[in-house]
């Protein structure tokens, strides 16, 4: 198994775990973490899969480089929205209908 394929498979697991956590956790900061972990998993799949024969591929690498910088901007925006929500309502979770806790 090449390094590329191994990390692509790791990325799949990270993406799935992040997606599940995004749906299951309540605290908004933790949702931001889960979302970032999903993104990292997707980046690993993108680069790892392109390099599964062991040769570096600059095209997905450049795309992931762009993606990382965009991800941190999205994180900053999400955190600003969470701060605003907390300042106005005191809540750190989104309101929901069911009483299904965590």
């Amino acid at each position: 198994m090449t390094t590329g394929l191994l990390f692509a498979l790791t990325g799949v697991v990270l993406f799935a775990a992040g997606a599940a956590a995004l749906l299951l956790v309540d605290h908004l900061l933790r949702r931001v973490l889960a979302f970032n972990i999903m993104g990292s998993g997707a980046c690993l799949v993108l680069v790892g899969l392109a390099q599964r024969n062991g040769v570096p591929d600059p095209v997905p690498q450049a795309m992931v480089l762009t993606g990382i910088v965009v991800a941190v901007a999205a994180t900053g925006l999400a955190l600003a929205l969470i701060r605003r929500l907390h300042a106005q309502t005191g809540a750190t979770t989104l309101p929901r209908d069911g009483a299904d806790n965590d």
Binding site: L5, L9, F15, A16, A19, A20, L24, V45, D57
Partner: peptide, 27 residues
């Protein structure tokens, strides 16, 4: 949700392991 995520992961991993050799190589 956990079952769906696990199923998704297994499905995608089996797909990755059975991928044909690279079809498009931009290098």
């Amino acid at each position: 949700v956990s079952a769906a995520a696990l199923g998704f992961a297994f499905w995608l991993i089996s797909a990755l392991l059975n991928l044909p050799a690279t079809l498009i190589d931009l290098r």
